[in-house]
Write a protein that binds this DNA or RNA. Structure first.
Lengths: 214, 214
DNA sequence: GCTGTTTTAATACAACTGTATTATATTACA
DNA sequence: TGTAATATAATACAGTTGTATTAAAACAGC
């Protein structure tokens, strides 16, 4: 008898409105009314899907992590395919390096869409520093990224000279590098900086394989 | 005839209250009333020193950059002294590396005070992403850090084997590494992570001097 | 179509915000 | 000490916030 609506899809649509506002104006601007206006609903509908604003923000952050997890997994699967495809033909270690580099470059805010995503993430992870209920999601994302870094580096290490650094240290280094480059690109998203950031990342990967520096 | 008060000192005291609140509860909690309570003044006194809240926040961020600039300069001066002192006695290149490493480690949130400072900085630089009037300060801080990184690396390069990377790229790398490690330590300030972060930084410096990896 | 349930909208309300206004207290100089 | 200029405090006010309440609308099954 009742009106039926896809509650999960509705919640995700609302969460995406939160993202849009957080990216454009900051998380503080994601008031219930602003979110409602952003996705063309009334505040009452928002309240129907989320009992409180805190629950809404928490869900929005949870969904980010979930989406990021999916994307990272699909990236990893994609890279495995490409690596398998390239290995029979070329025997040297440069092909996997280019593949891994392309992969990791997709985590940097080098275009408008990924810049918007990174801005959302910056807003949420800063909020997590002072809102304990959000902190677990930030830590989860951190560990996702770190294990992805580790996997990437292991694929590189499999055909390179003896390691100069423990794999875990390498992964921490790569992870920090990605985060730091992301921050810099958000503060200064000029084409120049984007090119430099990409070069920096590629150079790091090259140095980790023991390949010639330039 | 009037009551005279050190207006500049008063403004700095108020700005420091903003920092305390931003570090503890987030920048959104730095309301005029909260700031007044934090430094034991009335809202009227705050208004006397700052016409609007926006002016207050802008000054607080400006003061951070100014203080950071002073500290970086004093660190650089200190390092120059130590390097001069160590050069006549030891001829190898390891002494400067240790000095530079100690220097850069002081920029990471490895103790409670620097963690608080980093939290404040994270709050402000995130706010700068959506508040154009704050963005110049973030860029200024960025360029300060980057030129400091460059100077540090040049001191290392002066007695090392031929560079494997352009100095500017090296500096970008170091800068991103510092930012990224800082972020990770804020999200997860465990002793373990602190040790790993320090090791990562030291390893990077060693790799840039061409010194043996371990 | 009718009905009962659910979704949506509209409104209300108390708490909090930045800021303006007003009055009081404080102090340097005559 | 008296007074003028300033600093501080107290209060007021309009706007915004989250959320509770209420009424209207929409729709699945009969």
């Amino acid at each position: 008898m009742p009106k039926i609506v896809d509650e999960q899809a509705r919640r995700e649509r609302i969460a995406e409105a939160v993202w849009a506002i957080a990216s454009r104006d900051g998380l503080h601007a994601a008031t219930v009314r602003a979110v409602a206006a952003e996705c063309g609903l009334s505040t009452g509908s928002i309240q129907h899907s989320f009992p409180t604003q805190a629950a809404l923000l928490q869900f929005a952050m949870e969904l980010i992590v979930s989406r990021a997890s999916e994307r990272i997994n699909s990236l990893a699967a994609l890279s495995a395919d490409k690596a398998d495809a390239s290995r029979p033909t070329t025997a040297d270690s440069t092909a996997p390096l280019a593949i891994i580099a392309d992969l990791l470059l997709q985590l940097l805010p080098l275009d408008q869409q990924r810049e918007a995503e990174a801005r959302v993430w910056a807003a949420f992870s800063t909020a997590a520093l002072t809102q304990p209920e959000l902190a677990p999601y930030a830590r989860h994302m951190d560990s996702l990224l770190e294990s992805f870094c580790l996997r990437c580096l292991q694929q590189l290490a499999s055909n390179s000279q003896p390691n100069r650094q423990e794999p875990i240290e390498q992964a921490i280094h790569l992870h920090a590098l990605l985060d730091g480059l992301t921050l810099q690109l958000l503060a200064n998203p000029s084409p120049n900086r984007r090119r430099q950031a990409a070069q920096t990342l590629e150079h790091f990967l090259r140095s980790q394989t023991g390949a010639p520096a330039r």
